[in-house]
Design a protein around this nucleic acid. Structure first.
Lengths: 228, 228
DNA sequence: TTGCTTAAATGAGCATGCTCATTTATGATT
DNA sequence: AATCATAAATGAGCATGCTCATTTAAGCAA
């Protein structure tokens, strides 16, 4: 990994500690990269529960204890990976929301992108959704990546509420609806449905989306302007 | 525990194996009782996570391994207790549902009973709700008490759907609504809200119910007959 | 280069949920 | 009562997530 690592060349520290910081910083970044890759691989192969932190550490080429200097617990390893993959996707999905298009269709697009992601590795997604519900304690025990996940989820929820407010201003949503409550409702439906969908032996994307659309439509119908 | 247990009196098996079965059956029942009591106590004192199966076994006066002859895993111990306490409550709540009274009020009563139960020991309830979401695997790995819990939950959901159908027949719910989907929606709201409520440092019953009513009202409004 | 300070890595070890080969109790048979 | 078959109980032991005292490496000053 470090091809300039013999003692003779090591006399000048600057020779190795270039550009982006010293050796420490670079070693740390490199290790984090290897840990992510190892965790990704082992989780994919074995699933979250069967994966052991020992195997992840071994495959990353580090000692067991070292792993826990980079992630406070196993869950945070999973969140680390999922955050990296899900964040850009979420950002893209949120960007195309608009006040001018039908609410249900937009919701289905937004949630559909997530369903598509979950469908790529349903077993791992099932574990993630499970851990999502754990949200244990009141923030104390959660690792940084777990917190990141929930922060971004809250942002998404808020963004949906904002769109609802915009639609309200445009007259496409009942004026007397509480948009925050409505966003909570919609998200609750999404969570419950995705949970149930992923708890099937072999979740199929299309089936999941169909199961989602029905209660979502029902929830949306309560938001229609009077006489809609 | 067995006061006729000396050898001299043991010559006649019938002297001890009375009424409700032989010694084996009675020992088993007695042990199950002690295990339940021990688990109840330890869970209440330490919370689910901090409670150890070793302490439960010790307090029940049995060996460690014996515990797992009576419950396949720790979660099933919790479910055993909760089922015993929650089942009568659920049955009573379901019994008073009727097609003639306002939907929202009935839902608030039904879910309110559960909130009241959860509020008695929020820490333990939090763990239970968390495990509820685990519903791991496709039924394979779940213990009998865990399965009992989910069966009864499904029954409750079905009962709500039935009430919705009755209300539909009475003209109090939109004729074109899918009552099964509607029940799913309502239950999803309940789950999401109870989850969020219990994840606060000190959940207060009234607050929780207030937070529940809002999105529930919204969901119900989508079920009103046209022009309601 | 030599010390020295501090950050980082290490791996033995702990706690705990659960298993399983062995031991013990129970009930039936003679 | 003696013998046997089977159900049940036992506790040593395993796997694994995580900790922490100890060791090693990195940066820096002289």
């Amino acid at each position: 990994m470090n091809d300039a690592g013999n003692a003779a060349l090591e006399t000048d520290p600057a020779a190795d500690a270039t550009a982006e910081g010293g050796r420490r910083a670079r070693n740390k970044a490199e290790r984090r990269r290897r840990i992510k890759a190892a965790a990704r691989a082992v989780f994919a192969e074995k699933g979250f529960d069967a994966a052991t932190t020992r195997e992840i550490a071994a495959r990353a080429g580090i000692a067991n204890g070292t792993l826990f200097l980079y992630a406070p617990d196993k869950v945070d390893l999973l969140m680390m990976i999922v955050n990296d993959e899900l964040d850009p996707l979420t950002q893209a999905s949120l960007a195309v929301l608009s006040a001018d298009r039908p609410l249900l269709a937009q919701l289905m697009e937004f949630f559909g992108d997530r369903y598509e992601y979950w469908a790529r590795d349903p077993r791992l997604s099932r574990s993630l959704v499970r851990e999502t519900f754990n949200h244990d304690a009141f923030g104390d025990k959660a690792g940084p990546e777990t917190r990141r996940f929930h922060t971004h989820r809250a942002r998404s929820k808020a963004r949906i509420a904002a769109i609802l407010r915009a639609m309200q201003a445009a007259g496409n949503v009942r004026a007397d609806a509480d948009t925050d409550q409505a966003a909570r409702l919609l998200w609750a439906v999404y969570l419950a449905e995705v949970h149930e969908w992923l708890n099937q032996p072999a979740p199929v994307l299309k089936d999941g989306l169909a199961r989602l659309e029905a209660p979502l439509r029902l929830a949306v119908s309560g938001l229609q302007p009077a006489g809609g």
